[in-house]
Nucleic acid binder design. Structure first.
Length: 374
RNA sequence: GCGAUCGUAGCUCAGCUGGUUAGAGCAUCGGUUUGUGGUACCGAGGGUCGGGGGUUCAAGUCCCCUCGAUCGCC
């Protein structure tokens, strides 16, 4: 088995479909990776995640290093063994969480000192430590440690964070290469930063390519800038990344974001929306998202999404799911999450098929027309 | 039957010695959530202050009657 390979089977415009082959399995692209932050795709058993069509999931350096601890996971045989998922796992480096979750962060060239959101305990995350944690987890796709800044930051702050992310990318790559056996079976991705600025995106991409990575992520988007701005950025940012490597848009997104990003050449996605929304009452359907808490579903005997082949829609009615969600029942979160994961996987399968058959534009027009009509 | 305490939003209650348009939490109705804190946040509707009478410039608040609840005592 190869350590890591990416084969493009077909293209349609700037969109591509293909597969990433790794020792723990292959990832069909465009791919959607459900988020399993704390060694669990919340409310789902691993076999249910797999049954939805997911080829890989995302795990999280920040959360797992705080609890249960990376060394403990390593002692227990690695993250795959620990959580019962034997296919590829991509691990986020913690750069995003340090910005979004922890308090009292102090960013220096060495790394980031922060206080845990769980108990306030003090920790340090550097490129070296982030990669080490990901190695202890036995991650398949390791992400470089990067620095994000809020959308409200100034151009100077954005540039400094982008340049620091480049230096951290180099250190991440070097630490990864020191990983011995792990480096021989895992892959590492760099992360392009630069906010919405074309020159900064170019500088970031160029530097990452010089360092050399197995895949390249577009980072720092979907953080409040709005869809129009994000797509405008992708219009120039994606093409700066090597065409023969996977391109991963981090943290995105809504179904229509994914369709638009695939059209612009993105191959991989992760997002909390299908799982988090599942827990908070929002269900995705071809006719747009619906809030299952709404009173209009109280006696609705249709499935969540008419025509959906998932095991939730073939068995349960909206009225029942509405009741479960409103009652805060655990099963409500489970059923909603399962449906949403199926919806996302059916979407990327539809995109893969459409690209293979050179009809992506029709697919996109049809999907978006129906999805956004709501 | 007598005495005490209490009746304010669907529920639990706050409204100091009378003083703008009677509030809160929960519930209800709706919205937001993009490299996850089973969350959090935003907005809306909802009241003859148990009922009646009186005092006063002004009553949820004071007085009288009445209805109801809870507790205690014959």
């Amino acid at each position: 088995m190869p350590r890591f390979s990416f084969d493009i089977a077909a293209t349609d415009g700037t969109a591509r479909t293909g597969r990433i082959a790794m020792q723990r399995g292959e990832i069909r692209t465009p791919a959607f990776m459900p988020v399993g932050t704390a060694a669990t795709v919340k409310a789902m058993r691993p076999e249910e995640v797999r049954a939805s069509g997911a080829d890989a999931i995302l795990g999280n350096t920040y959360h797992l290093m705080l609890r249960p601890g990376a060394e403990r996971v390593a002692k227990l045989g690695g993250l795959h063994n620990f959580m019962g998922w034997d296919r590829p796992i991509l691990t986020d480096s913690g750069g995003y969480q340090v910005m979004s979750l922890s308090e009292l962060t102090k960013v220096a060239e060495e790394g980031v000192a922060f206080a845990s959101h769980l108990d306030g305990s003090r920790h340090m995350l550097s490129p070296e430590r982030s990669i080490e944690v990901q190695r202890l987890l036995d991650s398949d796709i390791v992400m470089q440690f990067d620095q994000l800044v809020p959308t409200t930051s100034t151009g100077v702050e954005q540039r400094e964070a982008m340049q620091r992310s480049i230096r951290w990318a180099k250190r991440s790559r070097e630490e990864f290469d020191r990983g011995g056996e792990h480096a021989e079976r895992a892959a590492i991705f760099g992360i392009q930063q630069g906010a919405l600025d074309e020159d900064m995106r170019q500088a970031s991409a160029g530097a990452l390519i010089d360092i050399g990575f197995d895949g390249y992520a577009v980072g720092g988007l979907a953080v409040g800038e709005g869809q129009e701005a994000m797509l405008g950025c992708l219009d120039f940012a994606v093409d700066m990344l090597p065409a023969d490597k996977p391109r991963y848009l981090m943290g995105v997104g809504k179904p229509d974001d994914i369709v638009e990003a695939v059209r612009r050449g993105i191959d991989m996605f992760d997002c909390v929306l299908p799982t988090r929304s599942g827990r908070t009452g929002q269900a995705f359907t071809a006719d747009g998202p619906i809030n299952m808490r709404n009173a209009r579903f109280a006696e609705d005997q249709e499935p969540i999404e008419p025509g959906c082949p998932c095991s939730v829609c073939t068995k349960f009615e909206r009225a029942y799911v509405h009741h479960l969600v409103k009652s805060g029942e655990i099963l409500g979160a489970m059923l909603m999450t399962q449906h949403n994961l199926w919806f996302y996987q059916r979407l990327v399968q539809g995109l893969r098929d459409a690209i293979s058959e050179q009809r992506l534009n029709e697919f996109a027009r049809e999907f978006l027309g129906r999805y956004r009509r709501a």
